[in-house]
């Protein structure tokens, strides 16, 4: 179970991972479209009306940025790194994020966020209604869990693809991840 959830790249073939990641991506595109969410960066999601094409392009940009920067980083560490191993790492590590749009069924989070804007003054914080606050708190905790899970998956995939070891590899991975996030945010903002 631990291998399946955190280290699938050590065990499953690239074909299985590619199919799983691609199907999950298709489901993710549909979920974000139906539940009015957008991934606007490798690690950022907003609640907004979207089209199916926009949802697809958002996720494709994120996948491309993650693949590009992680592949460059992996090649720097290990010359024999295969592109397919980095592609499946990006695809599979994003699967946990596809659970997040479910929190916005009936636009709950979108409505809660808008409602909370009425309580921005410090003296009004105590007056926040609990039924508005609760979904956002639950989403925040789950979001944090999903973020950590996704980064662990990304690192394990990167480590397997690039035979990466030691602090140097972690630093290079971290830099690649930050650059992929910045590039994806920039491209989504300007192109989509």
């Amino acid at each position: 179970m631990k291998t399946l959830l955190f280290k699938p790249f050590e065990r499953y073939t690239e074909q299985k991972l590619l199919v799983t990641g691609s199907i999950s991506m298709a489901i993710g595109v549909i979920l974000t479209y139906v539940l009015n969410c957008r991934f606007v960066g490798a690690f950022q999601m907003i609640f907004d009306d979207t089209t199916i094409i926009q949802s697809l392009v958002d996720i494709l940009i994120i996948m491309s940025c993650l693949t590009l920067f992680l592949f460059i980083a992996a090649k720097f560490i290990y010359k024999k790194t295969r592109l397919i191993d980095i592609i499946v790492t990006a695809l599979v590590s994003f699967i946990p994020f596809y659970m997040l749009p479910v929190f916005n069924i009936n636009d709950i989070l979108q409505k809660s966020t808008k409602e909370l804007r009425n309580f921005v003054l410090p003296e009004m914080v105590n007056q926040m209604p609990l039924d508005t606050l609760l979904p956002l708190v639950a989403f925040s905790f789950f979001g944090l869990f999903v973020l950590i899970w996704s980064i662990v998956l990304l690192y394990n995939g990167f480590k397997t693809a690039a035979n990466a070891k030691g602090i140097k590899a972690i630093v290079i991975f971290g830099i690649a991840l930050v650059l992929a996030d910045i590039a994806s945010r920039y491209l989504i903002f300007h192109l989509n």
Binding site: F9, E10, R11, T13, E14, K80, D85, T160, A161, N163
Partner: peptide, 18 residues
């Protein structure tokens, strides 16, 4: 070997490199 060991190709290749 990867199929026989029920491991992925890069895992087996990494082991060989090590």
């Amino acid at each position: 070997m990867a199929a026989k060991m029920e491991k992925s190709y890069p895992t087996v290749r990494n082991k060989l490199d090590d």
